[in-house]
Amino acid sequence: MHRTWRRFLLAAALLLSSIVHASADDGAVIDRWYSALLVADRSELSELLSDDVQMKLDDIGVVQDKRDFIASIDEWQGAVAGAAIRHRIEKSENGQTTVLACYDFPSNDMLMRETFTVAGGRITASTQTAVAQDCSGY
């Protein structure tokens, strides 16, 4: 009986360890994402996105694939000049990470909730929704 109980505890510990490790890896992908987004680094952003990624911008009803997203970086580069992006992970489970992000542009700021699905070190899906027109709730 003791041996079975120990095996169960060991299996549970290994499973928990793999979940915590996966969440940490996903957090590193998210950190890289925001760093690359801040400087409009096309090659890094492209590397972080899976080829079949779906980027959903809820507030404007737009869904972009990888090609569309990377093509929009020229416009984004002008918007993000002089900005800061602060983010914190609200929760991460089952390959999905929810982030609260403050986009602090020179003339305004905006609070967003962004959900990322990460698999194999790449973002496979992203949904972005506005929370507030300023970052006071960050």
Rank of each mutant, 00 (worst) to 15 (best):
D41L: 11
E114M: 08
C102F: 05
I73V: 13
I19F: 13
T98Y: 01
H2Y: 10
D41R: 07
I89Q: 04
S18W: 13
I85V: 14
G78E: 15
A11I: 07
F105P: 10
I30W: 02
I85D: 06
D25L: 07
A22D: 05
T117S: 11
Q128R: 14
Q54R: 05
R67G: 06
T117R: 10
R88F: 09
R42T: 03
R86Y: 13
A119H: 12
S43M: 03
D41P: 08
Y34E: 01
D41Y: 01
A13K: 02
A40P: 01
W76H: 14
C102M: 06
L9M: 11
A119R: 15
D74M: 08
I19V: 15
L49C: 10
Q77K: 13
T124F: 03
L15V: 08
S23G: 10
E114S: 05
I85R: 11
G137W: 07
A125H: 10
D41T: 12
Y34K: 04
F116R: 04
T127F: 06
R86M: 11
T4Y: 07
F116L: 01
C102E: 03
I89S: 05
G120H: 10
M110G: 04
A83I: 01
F69N: 05
A12S: 14
A101C: 10
K66N: 07
Q77W: 05
G137Q: 13
D59N: 09
L48K: 00
S18V: 02
S92Q: 02
D104M: 11
A40N: 06
G27Q: 08
T117K: 03
L38N: 06
